[in-house]
């Protein structure tokens, strides 16, 4: 029974990873038409170096993701601290307001942003994508930091204050260092949300400001080439390394043990 169960898990993992493996392998295959037998070649990666469109789109993607991570983490952390440590009226309603960016299909959020930004003159482009990505990332930051806050006892900060520390100092010297792993984890999460975002960017991008997923999509629509495989592989490597960093820093279970 145990053996059957484990075999089943293995089969599911094969299902999850097989196509990705094929995608990576085909990026290293010489044939432009994905023909076999397999012949190793780094040709498509070399080709990528001279693809100005993809390089500038990659640069846009990383830049937008980095700025999104910084803004969303600062705003989201402030909100998370207020939501979990301060008393005020309407808290439940404010928590509910964090749901739309997560729960509404991106197609609807993205087209709504397109309509509104166009109408108000905000327009499309780099700044519009940034506004959208930050909004999509904030709820995740509040969630990750909020979870981190539940593992830190509020009375530690109060103890510091009753010993004479000013409130600002108590927060920055007691709570913030304890919270730092969660905040860093939240920033990585925000970075990943932005880096992987396609739908919203697709509606807000202009030719000069498109991000990597948007460029990949338009390349796929034109026809499949191993160059797409190569750039997808690089994007995969980026996402996976962020994930590994995230598991190092924001382990909700582990931080609970520590306190």
């Amino acid at each position: 029974m145990k053996l059957a169960a484990r075999t089943y898990i293995l089969a599911v993992l094969v299902f999850l990873y097989l196509p990705i493996g094929v995608l990576i392998a085909m990026g290293f295959n010489e044939s432009p038409l994905y023909q076999l037998p397999f012949q190793f070649s780094s040709h498509w990666y070399v080709e990528l170096m001279s693809n100005r469109k993809l390089i500038s789109a990659s640069w846009n993607s990383v830049l937008i993701a980095a700025i999104t991570a910084v803004i969303a983490t600062v705003l989201g952390t402030l909100a998370a601290v207020a939501l979990s440590r301060r008393q005020f009226f309407g808290k439940e309603a404010l928590r509910l307001l964090l749901l739309p960016p997560i729960a509404i299909p991106w197609l609807i959020t993205g087209t709504a942003m397109l309509v509104f930004f166009y109408w108000t003159g905000i327009g499309r482009g780099f700044h519009a994508i940034l506004i959208g990505h930050v909004a999509l990332a904030i709820p995740y930051v509040v969630l990750v930091v909020g979870t981190g806050l539940t593992t830190i006892r509020a009375d530690l900060e109060e103890a510091a204050m009753s010993l004479g520390a000013p409130p600002v100092k108590a927060f920055f010297q007691v709570t913030l260092p304890l919270l730092a792993p969660s905040i860093f984890g939240a920033a990585l999460f925000a970075f990943a949300v932005s880096l992987d975002q396609f739908v919203v960017s697709y509606f807000l991008a202009t030719p000069g400001s498109s991000t990597l997923p948007v460029e990949i999509y338009s390349a796929i629509r034109k026809g499949f080439t191993p160059e797409i495989n190569a750039v997808c592989t690089i994007l995969l490597a980026g996402s996976v390394s962020i994930f590994l960093l995230f598991t190092l820093f924001a382990k909700p279970g582990a931080s609970r043990d520590r306190s």
């Binding site: 196509p19 094929v22 995608l23 499949f224 997808c232 996402s239 996976v240 962020i242």
Partner: peptide, 11 residues
């Protein structure tokens, strides 16, 4: 954590 577009393309 990987891009949905990439996974769809991989199929």
């Amino acid at each position: 954590w990987t891009n949905g577009l990439v996974r769809v393309f991989s199929w």
